[in-house]
Amino acid sequence: MKKISFAEFGGPEVLRLVDAEEPHAGLGQVRIAVRAAGVNPADWRIREGQAIGGSPAALPAGLGLDAAGVVDEVGAGVEGIEAGDAVFGEGISTYAEFAVLTAWARMPEGLSFEEAAGYPSVVETGLRVIREVGVRPGQTLLVSGASGGVGSAVSQIARERGITVIGTAGAANQDYLRDLGVLATTYGEGWVERVRRLGRVDAALDLAGSGVVRELVELTGDPRKVVSIADLGAPDLGVRFSGAAGSVPDALAEAVDLISRGKLRIPVEKAYPLADAVAAHVDIQAGHTRGRRVLLV
């Protein structure tokens, strides 16, 4: 099969489309014929050799966490799913023609493989950071980097729970955030005062790692009311860095419910052929994403 791999740490150019042995489903796993794989910011950090929740990846390494596809192999101990079922979920080295999933759910009706591949990790992350930051219905949550995949998920989930959302993003994404019901403003010089004019901030999330943690603490008045998923230096300011995933099956179940009720929709900004993974990484590392980027297999 074909897969994306890298044999050295570095920029997007280290990614290669290679021939590899097909993986097989182990205990409690399924294998899918991948139709689409989500591209996450964590992927380029792994490619650069950053230690995400542990040690750098062992080389050579594959990439990819999110995927959607068709089950073609069911591991021991798995019930309620069979070959031919369309699923989305999280797995191992999903930038490939075949991948093993460790958590999955049946795809909601009306969702394409391309769209479905964009949901798993961002919904899990969104649910986790809303829980960790402790924001409650009736309060206001500030989301720095609100237009990306996690920001899109956080904004909609929070709004569904009765939480007011203030979101920062680039000028081109202001209307997109407003369509999600977010009180939107731009980042850049003067952004703290612009946020203050929109209302009191009870809790804040740093989703972009753009060096704003200190200002988020200032706006909330308490580092315990700020959570970052992107700034490894956040703990130096007393802010929690959230990196360990919660229950992915629970997150997928909630995603299916929200999508089915029309309460959650994360657009795909751009889809790339698997062979164009280098271009996908160049684009996602540049930021300014609206929704998700995916690889098509």
Rank of each mutant, 00 (worst) to 15 (best):
G62T: 01
Y272G: 06
Q29M: 00
D175Y: 01
G148F: 02
A169C: 14
I46Y: 15
V133D: 08
R261K: 15
E79A: 14
E73T: 12
P137Y: 03
L65E: 09
S152N: 13
L59T: 06
S152L: 10
G11P: 01
P249T: 06
L111V: 14
F9H: 11
V143H: 10
I284C: 08
S112I: 11
I92K: 13
Y187H: 14
L17W: 00
H288T: 11
L27Y: 11
V239A: 05
A251V: 12
L216N: 03
V278Q: 15
Q29F: 00
A96W: 02
Y119S: 05
V143A: 11
V217C: 05
G209R: 05
A275H: 13
E48R: 15
L205G: 09
E114P: 07
A20T: 13
P41F: 04
A275T: 12
N173H: 05
D222L: 03
R35T: 00
W191L: 03
E114F: 07
L295F: 11
F6R: 13
M1R: 10
S93E: 15
Q285N: 12
P223Y: 07
T140Q: 06
R214L: 09
R224M: 07
A184T: 04
R197D: 15
P235R: 07
G209M: 01
A234G: 04
